[in-house]
Every structure is written in C-alpha cells, then in structure tokens.
C-alpha cells in the first residue's frame, strides 16, 4: 500500500509544489515533503495557528466548519485541506497555479483520507 510519505512526494512532483505536509488538527506533523527552503515545524506551526483561529471564529459565529482555506500572498500561496483527522497543507511560490493542480491535490487528499480511515 502507498504510504502517506509516498503520496506527498508524488503530489509535490506532479503538481510542481514547493512543498506539502500532513499535520494533525493540533499542529503535530505527520509527514512532510518540503523544499529545502521550508521547515516542516515552522510551516505546521504557522498553518495550525491559522486553521485553529479560523475553526474557532467560524464555530463562534455559527458558520460551522471549513473544508479548505487558500491564502494568496505576494510571494507564495498556501492551501489547507481538511482530510478528516488532519490537514493536508500545500505551498507554492507566487507563480504556482493551484487551480491547475487542484485535481492532483484533491486526489491526494482522497487517498490520505482513505489511509487515515484504515489506520483508525
């Protein structure tokens, strides 16, 4: 069976990403496939701050949960997809076309979701 690490490595190559990782909802890193310029702990720490803040404010506002969050900045983009018990985090540079890579990202998210179900 393909491991989480393999799925991330494949995704990183096929979707031309700067990096991707899987982290638990509390920010604990499960697996990473990142560029040398990125550190897993830093990316997961910052994205978990963002996801936990968003979850909290959405719940308090009565809007429910979120399935994905995309952040565009001047030098890069970050996409966070909820895959059940954890998040798939994807980063690209400012030229990366997340819309074009979406089929690969969704496919990886589906595989990761299946894997997490089997492991439970």
């Amino acid at each position: 069976m393909t491991s989480i690490q393999d799925i991330l490595e494949d995704l990183r190559v096929t979707a031309s990403l700067k990096g991707c990782l899987v982290m638990m909802h509390d920010g604990i890193v499960v697996a990473t496939a990142l560029d040398r310029s990125l550190e897993g702990d830093v990316v997961s720490g910052l994205t978990s701050f963002l996801t936990s803040t968003l979850r909290r404010v959405l719940t308090e506002s009565g809007l429910g949960g979120f399935t994905s969050l995309t952040v565009h900045s001047t030098h890069g983009k970050v996409l966070m997809v909820d895959i059940g018990t954890s998040y798939l985090v994807v980063t690209t540079n400012q030229f990366g076309r997340l819309d074009l890579s979406m089929p690969e990202i969704q496919e990886a998210a589906l595989q990761l979701r299946r894997l997490s179900r089997i492991s439970l």
Partner: peptide
C-alpha cells in the same frame, strides 16, 4: 491571521483568501 502567517512564513504580504465550508 493570514497577514501574520504570510509575514512569518516569509511569503510577503497577504493579498487574498478563500474559505470553503458548510
């Protein structure tokens, strides 16, 4: 939060975001 994270991740200034959910 996105502006703070973008700055700390060294990806410049936050410009836009989209959130999908229920």
């Amino acid at each position: 939060a996105a502006q703070r994270v973008s700055r700390r991740m060294d990806i410049g200034n936050f410009s836009k975001a989209s959130i999908d959910g229920e």
